[in-house]
Design a protein around this nucleic acid. Structure first.
Lengths: 242, 242
DNA sequence: TCACGTCTGTAACGATGCTTAACGCAACGG
DNA sequence: CCGTTGCGTTAAGCATCGTTACAGACGTGA
């Protein structure tokens, strides 16, 4: 049976640790090679195991990949949420900046995981069931929308720079609003998407090395400017603290 | 010898045609599979040839990949330039919109080529010599900077929304200005980078399917809004024509 | 017509990877 | 103390793929 014993806390712990080690080894290997390629042979070698042993933990290569993708979802979501929550709840502007910066930093630190989620599908991998791609969008965005809700509740959100909203976008906004306590106006919903696109663009270009010709200080300043523009356009207040 | 005969116009033509067919077949295969994987076996099969025959045209798999990447550079540059030049030279705002839209459209039509240039390096492929990645940045951006130069020369470029420029960015601007007749102010240079990031972000998200939950009309409107925001922030005039 | 270069196919080598099957070992529970 | 369970190894099968070597076919130019 593939079902693990139901009463063996010690075993299960070891098993979970091994699973984590496998995933971590896979990630490390991706970081070292700079690609999204993972081979059971490589992982096994790095763990001083033999390839077939891995099949005790993952049915096949795709299952490992799926797990990595799922983890990446969680990682970026947690990373961004933590950065946001580390800033006083009453300083919405600073919270916005924290989200923006953490999104960028995550992409920089983990370009492979970033690509895993936001890049082209990996070779030979078929996405399980319906659109985890869409789910990635949802989860990444949800942290941002939470902040917009906070801003609305605190009454500090100015109207966004762009006021006219296409009916199709308004419809999307309505649909999303059904899951929220505080209603997000369509213009603000649109501004959120603009914000995300803007920050994502910078993160992509930088993570994949297209800004390497600008030194780090310049990139930092450039990004903060981009974030400030985005905040301004979305009606987000300026940060109180530096 | 790998050197093709020096006097055989007919042969050379056929050879060039075959090379083009190989590259096109490779692209087609990438489009169909949705990945960046290319295998000599697949290409050969699609062309009703045998794998070894391909070695007459490309020394190895990497050489083919390099050629595809180089082509992608050219393609996007040409595509964007043509779109821009199809608009009256005195309507800078419309020209800007044309560039923005064509960049997005290219990414949408050719997500694989887009990823080839702007994504993570392909598995098992080592970039020849120094940073073609950087070159991609240069070439894509150059079409945009040409437009900014036009705008400056016509005196229709307003100061960008963001005025303070970090010294590191100013230094980059100075360096780029050495290759241009018309000097681009540092703030404008910075605004160009912001513009590119913004448009690129939307293009990435859409090309890789993260906006699939918005219907096409909505995406079109969303993008135009994004472009308008970017133009406004960069000091670009509004289009005269619709 | 004949020799040459070019192109292409057949065959084969070597490496690599995914995956399954069968066996041995250690820990755990009664 | 013994059976069960889970984990890991060895061995093997299978499928590819990249690449090279060799030999035949074709068109070209003298």
């Amino acid at each position: 049976m593939s079902t693990p014993a139901r009463s063996a806390p010690r075993r299960e712990k070891a098993r979970a640790a091994t699973i984590d080690e496998i995933k971590l080894t896979a990630l490390t290997h991706m970081r070292e090679t700079g690609t999204l390629d993972i081979r059971f042979a490589d992982i096994a070698r790095a763990m001083e195991m033999t390839p077939p042993a891995l099949y005790r933990y993952f049915a096949d290569r795709d299952e490992l990949l799926s797990a990595l993708i799922a983890d990446a979802y969680d990682d970026v979501g947690r990373y961004v949420a933590e950065a946001r929550d580390a800033v006083p709840a009453d300083d919405i502007g600073a919270r916005f900046l924290a989200i923006a910066r953490s999104y960028r930093q995550w992409a920089r630190q983990e370009p492979q995981q970033f690509a895993l989620i936001f890049g082209l599908p990996v070779a030979g991998y078929v996405a399980p069931v319906d659109g985890p791609t869409t789910e990635a969008a949802q989860r990444a965005m949800s942290q941002l929308s939470l902040l917009f809700v906070e801003a609305i509740d605190l009454g500090v959100l100015a109207p966004p720079r762009l006021r006219d909203v296409h009916p199709a976008i308004a419809a999307c906004a309505d649909q999303k609003n059904q899951h929220l306590a505080t209603e997000i106006p369509a213009e603000t919903f649109q501004a959120m998407l603009h914000t995300w696109s803007t920050l994502h663009g910078f993160a992509c270009l930088e993570a994949y090395g297209h800004f390497d010709w600008i030194d780090e200080a310049g990139r930092d300043a450039l990004f903060d400017g981009q974030a400030r523009l985005a905040a301004e356009a979305a009606g987000m207040p300026a940060p109180k603290s530096s």
